[in-house]
Computed example of a mutant assay.
Amino acid sequence: MNASGTPPHPGDGRDPDGAVRAWRGLASDAVLLDGFHAVKHALRFGAAVPVALTSDRAAVLALADDLAPDVRAALDALLVEVPADTLRALVPRLHPTAVAALGSRPSRAEGLAALSRVPRTRPVVVLDQPRNLGNAGAVIRLAAGFGITGVITTGTLDPWHPTVVRGGAGLHFATVVERVEDAGQLPPGPLYALDAEGEDIRGLTLPDDAILAFGSERTGLSAPVRERADQLVSLPMNPRVSSYNLATSVAMTLFHWSTGHGPAV
């Protein structure tokens, strides 16, 4: 009990055992936010974060003072310091900033509804059967930076996998991120699919309601997405070079779209 006679909140810095118990009870269903930047972005974009642990509370708060004063008060209220060994037992691949938190995953139904809502003023990116978790995270980070409507993956990769969230620096909460089974479940809108056989993107204007589809790192676009495409689009590239990295392709395409728009909001 604290001085007021009520149990201490796991995040008030005075109940490490309670915070660890809360972590263990939530971990199987929650989103792992590993590292200062992931926690910072989750808080900045309104994620529900019930518990956050660190082995060096003072160091994390000093980082917040320097890099994210807007979330410093929230971190101060939330962070619980636990022994380093305890933290590493809960998060074996701990980020060098020695802080991790658990966030509540947004509603899937609300996310799919937001992606399908028309009229749409910013594109949706589709990663068609991606394989690389880090690339998927980098794309979600790009989506947040450009302020687009969201990112959809098809196939089996979970876009909320901890490695994807780590690669996205917690910016899943700044956009909509969902997975669908196949091309038949994609939202409405003109589908522009990136393909080496397509029309050069430099001669095209991508509409704001575009669905921008990118194939997997190894096999390219799946047949269903290719068949559904309204337009195949290619990026300029030296013919002796076989391909770009997936995140690079998304960045080039979103930059091309963004040239006619103001800053992301």
Rank of each mutant, 00 (worst) to 15 (best):
E81W: 11
G189D: 03
L221P: 02
P10I: 10
A210V: 07
M1Y: 14
S28Y: 00
V49F: 12
R14L: 15
L115W: 04
L194C: 14
A73W: 05
G150W: 01
H172Q: 05
R228K: 08
G189M: 01
V124L: 08
V91C: 09
S28K: 03
L79G: 13
V126H: 06
R108I: 02
D70E: 15
E181I: 00
P106T: 07
R131Y: 10
G168M: 03
T156C: 10
S243I: 09
G168Q: 04
P8E: 08
P187S: 12
I211V: 15
V180P: 05
R108A: 12
L133C: 04
S107A: 08
P224A: 09
W257Y: 08
T205A: 14
I211M: 13
V20F: 02
A210K: 08
R72T: 01
V125M: 06
V20M: 03
E81L: 09
L102N: 03
P106Y: 07
F173R: 05
A100Y: 01
M252N: 01
G5M: 10
A136P: 04
L235G: 12
E217I: 12
A48G: 02
R179P: 02
S104E: 10
V91S: 12
T253N: 03
S222Q: 05
L212H: 07
N2H: 15
P236H: 08
V241D: 09
T121Y: 11
A114C: 02
P190C: 06
V176E: 02
A73F: 01
A84R: 12
P83T: 06
P123I: 01
A62M: 14
A59I: 03
L33Q: 14
R21S: 06
T259Y: 05
G220L: 10
Q185Y: 09
D76R: 12
A27H: 11
V164N: 06
R24F: 00
P263F: 03
F214Y: 07
G25N: 08
A196E: 13
L232M: 10
V125K: 03
G134N: 08
T97K: 04
A144W: 11
T97H: 13
P159H: 13
L33M: 13
G167P: 08
G203K: 11
L90A: 02
A144D: 05
S216F: 05
V99T: 09
H37E: 03
P119Y: 05
D85V: 14
N132S: 13
V126S: 05
G189N: 07
L61H: 09
R117H: 11
V151L: 00
A223I: 02
L43K: 00
D15L: 14
D66Y: 10
D76C: 13
A136W: 02
D128E: 06
N135I: 02
P187N: 10
V241A: 14
R93L: 06
G145V: 07
D208K: 10
L127T: 01
T153S: 07
I152F: 04
R120Y: 08
L186T: 00
R218T: 15
D208N: 13
S55L: 05
A193L: 06
D128M: 11
P106L: 13
D230Y: 05
A183L: 02
M252D: 02
D29P: 00
T163E: 04
R93H: 07
Q185S: 14
N2D: 15
G203W: 04
L102P: 00
R57M: 11
L32W: 00
R108Q: 12
G11W: 11
